[in-house]
C-alpha cells in the first residue's frame, strides 16, 4: 500500500533518517516511536507528500507520490497533523465535514448525505453534544477528537497520525485507539507517531523505532517492544508490567 525505499530526510542540514525502507500494508497498524527530535514528524510529512525527502522514493499503490495529483492523493493518504490553527469559525460538524472535500465533485455541488456520516463519527468519538458548538471554543482534547473525526471523514486508504493521543484524557485515549484499530480491521493502513509504548503494544501490530544516528529497527510489536529496546530507545529505565491481555511499560 505505502512503500518507501532508500528514504533519507535532513532537517536544517542535520541528517535524521538515512536509507529507510518501509512497507505498510492494508489492515496493518504501525506505531512510530522515538525520542523528541529524531525525525518522526518529518518522516510523517514526507510519507504524506507534504515535504520532499532528501533522497528516496515513496509510492502509494505502486505510484510515486510526486506523480499523483493532490486530490487523488487525498483519497489514498490522509494525515492528522500535530499542530493546526484553532481559529476555524464554523461548528464542530462543519469542521468534520471539511474532511469530505476530496470526495465532493465541485465547489458548487456540495454533497448532502455526508452530514449523517459526520454525525456518526462525532458520536463514535464522544463529541455528539458538541455538534453545533463553534469549533474554536472546544477544549484541547475535544478539538483533538474533532480533528481525528475529520480524518476519519476523509477516510483515505492510509491514515498517518502525528500523536493522536495528545491532549486526551485516559477514557478518550481508549476511545480514539479503539476507533483507529477498527479502521485497521476494516482494511485501512495506519501509521501513527506515539509516545505511549503501552498503547502501541496494545493496539498496533507493527512498530518502527527511530533512534538518533539513523538506526531504525522495525517489526511486529510483540517482538520489538521489549524492555531492552525501549530502555535503549528512550534512554531511561523502563519496567514492563503485565495485566491480562495487556503489556504495559512504566518509566522509572
Amino acid at each position: 500500500m505505502l512503500k518507501a525505499s532508500g528514504l533519507s530526510i535532513e532537517v536544517a542540514g542535520r541528517s535524521l533518517i538515512e536509507g529507510l525502507a518501509l512497507e505498510v500494508e492494508r489492515g496493518q497498524c504501525w506505531a512510530l516511536l522515538g525520542r523528541n527530535g529524531t525525525g518522526k514528524t518529518s518522516l510523517l510529512f514526507a510519507l504524506a507528500g507534504l515535504r520532499r525527502p532528501h533522497r528516496g522514493v515513496i509510492q502509494i499503490e505502486g505510484r510515486p507520490l510526486a506523480d499523483t495529483p493532490r486530490r487523488e492523493l487525498a483519497l489514498r493518504l490522509g494525515i492528522l497533523l500535530q499542530d493546526e490553527p484553532a481559529d476555524f469559525w464554523g461548528s464542530t460538524l462543519d469542521y468534520v465535514l471539511l474532511g469530505r472535500f476530496p470526495r465532493s465533485r465541485t465547489a458548487f455541488a456540495p454533497d448532502t448525505d455526508p452530514r449523517e456520516q459526520a454525525q456518526r463519527l462525532l458520536v463514535e468519538l464522544e463529541l455528539a453534544e458538541h455538534l453545533t458548538q463553534p469549533y474554536r471554543t472546544l477544549s484541547g482534547g475535544e478539538r483533538q477528537r474533532a480533528r481525528i473525526a475529520q480524518l476519519l471523514m476523509q477516510d483515505p486508504d492510509c491514515l498517518l497520525l502525528d500523536e493522536p493521543l495528545q491532549h486526551l484524557d485516559l477514557r478518550h485515549q481508549l476511545t480514539v485507539m479503539q476507533a483507529l484499530a477498527a479502521r485497521a480491521r476494516a482494511g485501512r493502513a495506519l501509521l501513527m507517531v506515539l509516545h505511549e509504548p503501552t498503547a502501541a503494544a496494545r493496539f498496533c501490530d507493527h512498530a518502527l523505532l527511530l533512534y538518533h544516528a539513523g538506526r531504525i529497527p522495525q517489526g511486529p510489536t510483540n517482538e520489538l517492544l521489549t524492555q531492552e529496546n525501549l530502555e535503549s530507545l528512550y534512554q531511561c529505565r523502563i519496567e514492563p508490567v503485565s495485566a491480562p491481555g495487556i503489556q504495559a511499560f512504566i518509566p522509572r
Binding site: F45, A48, G49, L50, R70, R71, E72, L73, A74, L75, L77, G78, I79, L81, E84, P85, D87, F88, W89, G90, L98, G99, F101, P102, S104, A107, F108, P110, Q154
Partner: peptide
C-alpha cells in the same frame, strides 16, 4: 469557484494540501 478550498485553507496550508487542495 475556490470557495470550498478557501474554507479548508483556514485550517493551514499543510492540512489543506493533505485534503487535496492545490
Amino acid at each position: 469557484t475556490q470557495a470550498a478550498s478557501l474554507d479548508i485553507l483556514t485550517l493551514g496550508e499543510d492540512k489543506a494540501r493533505s485534503l487535496g487542495v492545490a
